[in-house]
């Protein structure tokens, strides 16, 4: 079975995603990094689904994809809103609220 390879790929994607989320200052890039993590999840799900010979993994993955789309939609809306109000999507500068 080719399970481990998929899992390793998923883990790598996950790590890259996490790095992106934590390190990129551009809001859009952060959104994309999150997509990477979600895709890592999808790979895992599909792989495991195949491994267990159950469609649940694929179904789960479909739900994730759908929801991720919605999420990114909202996310982009928020980034846009920020951009409109501040003319910047640098996350570092978004720190009005703290303490």
């Amino acid at each position: 079975m080719w399970l481990n390879q998929f899992l390793i790929l998923g883990a790598l994607l996950f790590c890259i995603g996490v790095y992106g989320v934590l390190a990129r200052r551009n809001g859009v890039m952060v959104l994309m990094s999150i997509e990477l993590i979600l895709n890592a999840v999808n790979i895992n799900l599909v792989a495991f689904g195949a491994f267990h010979a159950t469609p649940a993994g694929q179904v789960f993955a479909l739900f994730v994809i759908a929801v991720a789309a919605a999420e990114v939609g909202v996310g982009l809306a928020l980034v846009l809103l920020i951009y409109r109000n501040r003319s910047s999507i640098d996350l570092e500068s978004v720190d009005l609220l703290k303490g």
Binding site: V18, V21, R25, V30, V94, D95, L96, L97, K98, G99
Partner: peptide, 17 residues
């Protein structure tokens, strides 16, 4: 502890992770 709450969202995410 309050200083940790510096308002940077990625800092928060880093903490979480």
């Amino acid at each position: 502890l309050r200083r940790m709450q510096n308002g940077r969202v990625q800092g928060y995410a880093a903490l979480m992770f």
